[in-house]
Simulated assay, not measured.
Amino acid sequence: MPFACARASFGSRGGCWLKRAGNGLKFMTFLSRIHRTAGVFLVLTILAGCATQPQEPGSGPQVYDPIEPVNRVFFAMNETVDTFVLQPTAFVYKTALPDPIQDMVRNFLRWLRSPVVIANSLLQGDTDNAGNATRQLFVNGLTVGLIDWGHGQDWGYRNEDFGQTLGYHGVDGGPYLVLPLLGPSNGRDLVGRVVDIFFDPLTYIVSGPGARNAIAIARNGTSAVDFRARNFDQINELKASSVDYYARLRSIYLQRREAVIHNGKVPDSALAADGSKEFEDFSPTDRPRSVTGALPAKSN
C-alpha cells in the first residue's frame, strides 16, 4: 500500500525523474571508464619508465624481452590471423583495387590521423612537421582527405605518435611486447597508444562506445590490410628467409622505432647486438606495388 501511494504521488514528473536518473547513471559509467583508463595509464607509465634494458660489459645493446614465452604465443596467434585472414584479404585488395584507389585509402587514413601528428609534433617542439600536418589537415580536408594536395611539395607526411614523443624526451622503451592483433610494441609505445586516443578528435565526436569501437576496428583493420598489401611480397620473403621470424621481426621493429624517434638519425646504441642495421634494408613502403630495399640474407 505505501508503495502504491508513492507511485500515485509520483505523478507526471516520474518520467522526467527517470530520465535524469538514467543520465546520471550514464555519467557515472563514463567516470568509471575514465578511472579505469587512468589506472591502466598509470601502471603502463610506471612499466615504461622504470624498466631498463640489461647491459653486459663488452657486449652490444641487448634486447629486453622478459616475457618472451608469452610474446611468442601472441606472435603465433597473430601469424595465424595473418595467414588465414590478413594475407588473403590484402591479396584481393592489391589485386582488385587500382593504384589510385589504394592511394586514396592511404591518404584518408593519414588525414584522419593528422590531429594526433600535430599534437605530438608540438610536444616534441617540431613546429615544421606540425605546420605540414596542419596544412594537410585543412587543405586535404577539401576532399575529405582522399587526395593529398601536398604530394610532391615541401610539406610531406611524417607520422608522429606519443610513443615517439616519450622516446624523444628520453623515456626508455621498456619491455618488448607483442600485442594480440596489433603486433610488435613495447611498454613505452603501449602507453603512447593509450594517450593518442585522447588526442584523436573522433574520440569526442563519435558518441557511444559501440560506435567508437566500430570505428577503431575499421581504421585499424583497413590500415593493416593497406600496409600488408603494399608490402605483400617483401613480408612473405622476410618470413621465408628467416630462421627465427619472431627474433628477426623484433630486431627490425626495435631498430625502426629508434629510427623514427630520431627522424632517421639512429644512434649507435639503437643497433642490434651484432651491430647490424637490418631495418635499413627492409623499409616498409607507402606506395602500391613499389619495391622496398633488398632483404638482408642474414637471419637473427
Rank of each mutant, 00 (worst) to 15 (best):
F3N: 02
C5Q: 14
R7S: 10
R7A: 13
G11C: 04
L18Y: 04
R20C: 04
R20F: 11
G22R: 08
F27Q: 04
F27S: 08
F27Y: 07
M28V: 14
R33M: 10
T37P: 06
G39R: 07
V43I: 15
I46P: 02
A48F: 05
A48R: 04
C50R: 01
P54Q: 06
P54E: 05
Q55H: 14
G60L: 12
Q62H: 06
Q62V: 11
P66H: 00
V70M: 15
F75R: 06
F75W: 07
A76H: 01
A76I: 07
N78A: 03
N78C: 08
E79Y: 14
E79K: 08
F84W: 15
F84K: 01
F84R: 02
F91G: 05
V92Q: 00
Y93F: 13
P98S: 02
P98I: 09
Q102S: 03
Q102M: 06
D103G: 06
V105Q: 01
F108T: 00
R110Y: 14
R110F: 12
W111S: 07
P115C: 12
P115Y: 09
S121D: 06
S121Q: 03
L122R: 00
L123Q: 00
L123E: 07
G125Q: 07
G131L: 01
T134Y: 07
Q136T: 00
N140D: 03
N140A: 00
N140F: 01
G141P: 02
T143D: 08
V144W: 14
G145V: 00
L146N: 03
W149Y: 09
G150Q: 00
G150F: 00
H151Y: 12
H151T: 09
Q153M: 00
Q153L: 12
D154W: 02
D154E: 12
W155S: 01
D161P: 03
H169V: 14
H169S: 07
D172E: 04
G173H: 11
G173K: 14
G174S: 08
P175D: 08
P175A: 15
L177Y: 01
L179R: 01
L179P: 00
P180Q: 09
P180L: 04
S185V: 10
G187M: 02
G187L: 07
R188C: 09
D189A: 15
V191S: 03
G192M: 11
G192D: 08
V195M: 15
F199T: 02
F199E: 00
L202K: 04
I205C: 02
G210Y: 12
A211H: 07
A211T: 09
A214F: 14
R219Y: 11
R219C: 08
N220S: 12
S223H: 13
A224W: 07
A224I: 10
A224D: 14
D226P: 01
F227T: 14
R230S: 02
I235E: 13
V243L: 12
V243E: 10
V243F: 15
Y246W: 04
A247M: 01
R250W: 10
R250T: 13
S251N: 10
I261H: 05
I261D: 00
I261K: 08
I261Q: 05
K265D: 12
P267M: 09
P267W: 14
D268M: 03
A270V: 14
A272K: 05
A272H: 13
G275W: 06
S276Q: 01
S276I: 05
E278A: 10
E278G: 15
F279E: 10
F279M: 11
F282T: 04
P284H: 10
V291S: 15
K298E: 11
K298M: 11
K298P: 06
